[in-house]
Amino acid sequence: MKFIFILALLLFPVPLHAQFPDGAAVLEKVDQNLNSTTQVIRSKMIIHSRRDTRTVESKSWTEGDKRAYTEYLAPAREKGTKMLKIQDQLWMYSPSTDRIIQISGHMLRQSVMGSDLSYEDMMEDQRLAGLYGAEIIGTEIIDGRTCWILHLVAKKDDVAYHSRTMWVDQERYVPMKEELYAKSGKLLKKTELSDFRQINDRWYPMHMRFKDVLKTGDGTEFVVDSIEFNTAVPEHLFSKAALRR
């Protein structure tokens, strides 16, 4: 993959590195833009599988990147299923069994509701600045907006994706496209973000498309119906007891 960047650099002579802003600072701004103290989000996940397309609706309450609570609303089959993330632990509650099962080990690798996202992907820390070192390697225009091409390399060993490339809107500091790579440099997953809206003082993508590139298929769409930042989230949601309620 690296040689593509080199190729890109050769074909589109851009100002030298020194003229780019600091990658880490850009990444920090992206983090600030996408993350908040709390988030309440209502969303739809549109899953394109080989055979059909399904839509799963859910509502999530998130606090920082450590605690999250999700309740599924539709379809009827998933309604009432709840998920709780506290630090790096994940529990799932299914109303039909009235049991709370901790999702761990192997199960974390399963896809969420049949999507191209795994539980692990969902568990991932949202703040990238802590995990990755960032460097800007170029600029590119996507959908008429000029983006920094940000190359991220993991600072630690235990990060799921060793490196990422992110196309960040130079003005709004939101990623428009992201690619996740294996340690070997092989492309594993792609994300495309679009339909940016300004909410308060930040820009947020209302539509995302995830794609596991090794697998054939049309990937998974994630559509935000409504999102609120920094509203009060009741503390009681972040307990296992809340799952049964």
């Binding site: 993991a154 060993d157 235990d158 990060v159 799921a160 994706y161 060793h162 996740l180 294996a182 340690k183 070997s184 092989k186 594993l188 090794l214």
Partner: peptide, 12 residues
């Protein structure tokens, strides 16, 4: 595709 001992994805 596999994961190394640290859990990092790798593929080749």
């Amino acid at each position: 595709r596999w994961r190394d001992a640290n859990g990092t994805f790798d593929a080749a």
